[in-house]
Design a protein around this nucleic acid. Structure first.
Lengths: 353, 353
DNA sequence: TTGAAAGCGCTAACAT
DNA sequence: ATGTTAGCGCTTTCAA
């Protein structure tokens, strides 16, 4: 038992003042730092602070004008590797800039997002960062536009990180990366190996991240004068289980293909296992590529060819850009590049399907 | 451009009151919910609220006694899969119980931890959850005991989640899982396959998580009347890179072993790749096991035998237990069980080394 | 059912 | 250099 002051009997600045024989303002000044205070006064105040184990109530400071600023980020599930990396970038940069960092997992439920954003509005968070792709419906745009406006009205800022921009004029900071470009380059690489029937695997059918990558897949084909078979695009979600299930099903269905481009590395991992289970060798029998370049990609066997996305940088930039934003200034929209990481999972394919 | 009220001109409860032609208290009561207010009054207040797009300042509410409670969790790096799962559990349960959730990554620097805990004390967070193992030094115990006391003194609660308990009497809630037991069972399984020279790979030498697992490794040997060769324990850290590097070095050094037990699945993943690179087959030439049972473990090739840890549950319990704690009540200490997941990476070993 | 007034814990302008 | 006095935006007695 080492507890000093009685439990939960938080002492206030006035207790400290009384104990030190000075006024509350003096205590505030001593603790504040830079204001001129005599050494003697400072001494007795500090002693009182120590004896009482006093810490100023941050909420009271906040409301009085001082106080640590806060920033929030919202994602579907911190458990996804790319989410985790963005979150890490956000947290690091926020901390570096002296902000407290609130999180919320929506579990994919929009109502959670709405509710949380409203909460952040009342918290007067400096910025709210929506992390990760979404279904880009009119309802989404309208809803998000509203969030942007209502945050702006209390001096806060909405940030879309890895999420598509709204209509021009919305008070939003957007930090994206090039889903389409990355997929384009990746699929071009695959096609260059001679593959002609390339499966696109996983990702929610209505999800901007999946759609962007799919657009790249399509564009790469077209750029070569190829028209991909529509039955070669299989949707699901972004999990390893979806990859496993879809791949297994494709095999059972006797779908013809010589290469697989997965919507994410997670999907690719599941697909790889399904391929192995079917006795297929990668890349000898089937080539496989992923997207995201999560750390594990190197340890799949064969090591996974994939697209590297600067997730952490994305998170950092989201924070920095949002906090630097000056109202009245044009809204920022950044698009970060990606690059293909060639490893061992894509090999030559017969040109004749 | 849809912004309604002038930018950043947050309206206050008084603005709403004025607009609705009532007093501030009435507005407060209407918004508060359960207090009796006439339908007419409620109507005009709500309209004013809507027109002004008013949200009560959460900080002001907090200081006035109402206000959403807050909870914080601290971890080294959200990017680690097991951390991410604990974080997810924490966040879910906190949200479920109506709490806001603050995060902090320490990046392994104790000063960040100290600073953040002090911050949380001033935020009057309901609880602060320290997530993940650590070096269990006297300095650590003293420091942490101090955090526990100082949090308790403001009515907050320190929680150790996946981290060793302090000396009895410290005002702390502890939720652990059985590192030693899990490793014991796992290594027993490996030894039962006939392996006699089992490498223990990775983990920081001074880290409780690694040490607990190592103790289980040792105990399993002793239980069979075996004395493991001390040169078979190789420390590093918990990353896949460490696993790769250590495994590679062990191979170069010509260390003799027929099985490898990695401190974590991440380490195992790196080790597996190093093994493959050396042309060794798992489990034919060398058996390999991990610890944590992260989702990817299934997709390594061969699928990794490992120990399942209920990380998410751990996080959830940490929150629930902490928030349910009543001062004066005995301090909780939970120890969750683990179980071995047998997959394909451990095979029979020659009994003669 | 509603309003006036006090107070939450702090900071800051305004005196001395 | 230090104390006094107002607030900050909200809730909550206490009266009416």
């Amino acid at each position: 038992m080492t507890r000093k002051s009685g439990d939960a009997s938080r002492s206030t600045i006035r207790d400290v003042a009384a104990r030190a024989g000075v006024s509350a303002s003096t205590v505030s000044r001593v603790l504040g730092g830079v204001y001129p205070v005599s050494a003697a006064t400072r001494g007795s105040v500090m002693r009182a602070v120590r004896e009482l184990d006093y810490v100023a109530d941050a909420r009271a400071k906040a409301i009085a004008g001082a106080g640590t600023p806060t920033l929030a980020f919202v994602l579907e599930d911190i458990t996804g590797p790319s989410f985790a990396h963005m979150a890490h970038g956000v947290e690091r940069e926020a901390t570096r800039l002296g902000h407290l960092c609130l999180v919320c997992s929506t579990e994919g439920d929009v109502r959670n997002e709405l509710e949380f954003v409203e909460m952040m509005r009342s918290q007067r968070a400096a910025a709210v960062i929506l992390v990760g792709g979404t279904a880009d419906t009119p309802a989404y745009r309208e809803r998000t536009q509203r969030m942007a406006d209502s945050l702006a009205s209390v001096g806060s800022r909405l940030v879309l990180c890895g999420r598509p921009p709204l209509d021009p004029g919305a008070p939003v900071t957007v930090i994206e990366y090039d889903n389409e470009g990355g997929a384009h380059t990746l699929v071009t690489h695959v096609l260059a190996q001679g593959h002609r029937r390339v499966l696109f695997l996983g990702g929610r059918a209505d999800h901007t991240t999946a759609l962007g990558r799919e657009r790249g897949y399509l564009a790469a084909h077209r750029a070569r004068g190829l028209t991909p078979d529509p039955s070669l695009v299989l949707h699901g979600d972004f999990t390893r289980d979806a990859g496993h299930r879809l791949m297994h099903q494709a095999l059972v269905d006797g779908l013809e293909f010589s290469a697989v481009v997965a919507a994410t590395d997670m999907v690719a991992a599941g697909a790889l296992t399904a391929l192995h289970e079917a006795g297929l060798k990668v890349p000898d029998d089937v080539s496989l590529a992923g997207y995201d370049d999560i750390p594990f990609a190197r340890d799949l066997h064969p090591a996974l060819t994939t697209v590297h996305v600067p997730y952490e940088e994305l998170g950092r930039l989201a924070v920095r850009t949002a906090l630097e934003h000056t109202p009245g200034t044009p809204d920022e929209h950044l698009l970060l590049g990606t690059h293909v990481v060639v490893r061992d999972s894509v090999g030559p394919g017969a040109v004749t399907a």
